[in-house]
Nucleic acid binder design. Structure first.
Lengths: 156, 156
DNA sequence: TCAAACAGGACCAGGTTGGTCCTGTTTCGG
DNA sequence: CCGAAACAGGACCAACCTGGTCCTGTTTGA
């Protein structure tokens, strides 16, 4: 189905919310009520984001979470990597030989890399701050190759 | 985990194999032995690809499958759409209101579209024939935004 | 006429995800 | 100095989806 997991989905929603006021910190219960997501889930995701270094946590009463760097320096790729693991459509990852049973006969290694890389680059091109101001993103940054009409992209 | 399903994975492998000799047609058993994938699975996937219009099937003895159009006019996006459903990282798809329970409060609709679109464009930019000749693909087509160094893409 | 190959389902086991809960530990405020 | 609010880090389980097989037609070349 090629979906993000809900964990990543919710995580990006939460990050986007935090990015509105980058320097404030927000407690998990507050974010849960604001986003109307269940608290245990929100809490779990925030903990993960903190552990992985995208959020800073402040313990104790009046604690909470805040962004660890400015939102324009956090990419969608960063968040998805943390929440859903490395961005790779297939198991053919360069530094993991032996994962793919077809390895010896598969002629496609380099090609999968290409696909993976294309997706990764596309996602690295969108920053958290741009998610809050979607209109600012130039199309070229989204991976639109020039203005050459592409005969391949049919309807879906 | 953001993986393609194995169905899509295998499907692309099979399509790539077919694309080597675009006009020939290949029987499922032949493809199964060539790719060393189990026949029932290969058969299932080929049937799907045929039903969805990416392959042409020839029934009867000496039957088989062949590409329905030249490999440079079949994009990776085409194949993934058929094998794994529409390319959308999240359920926020434009013509499906009501799917997302957060709809009324979610400020992100437009933004998810952006992410989905970026991925879709990246995958539309790679054709089946390029998968067989990976070196031919210019980087810009992969979505690399000019040569502006991107400070967001840190290590992973 | 037979065998090879496609068509279209039904079917099931296993793994992953989504979500909850529980037991610490830290820290602010009164 | 104490208690409540919040974070930390797991364990845990149900539900769903995927991966894969198999079976019964139908078509067609030799």
């Amino acid at each position: 189905m090629i979906r993000l997991t809900k964990q990543a989905d919710y995580g990006i929603v939460l990050m986007t919310y935090l990015a509105r006021i980058p320097n404030r910190h927000f407690a998990a219960p507050e974010l849960a009520t604001e986003t109307r997501l269940p608290l245990p889930t929100v809490s779990k995701i925030l903990k993960l984001l903190a552990r992985e270094g995208l959020l800073e946590s402040h313990r104790g009463a009046k604690g909470g979470y805040s962004l660890v760097r400015p939102p324009d320096r956090i990419s969608v790729a960063d968040m998805i990597s943390v929440l859903d693991g490395p961005i790779a459509f297939t198991e053919c990852i360069e530094d993991a030989p032996g994962v793919c049973s077809q390895e010896s006969i598969c002629q496609l290694r380099g090609n999968w890399q290409l696909i993976n890389q294309a997706v990764r680059l596309a996602l690295e091109g969108i920053s958290l701050s741009e998610l809050n101001h979607p209109l600012d993103i130039p199309l070229v940054q989204l991976g639109v190759p020039g203005d050459q009409a592409d005969p391949r992209s049919l309807d879906h």
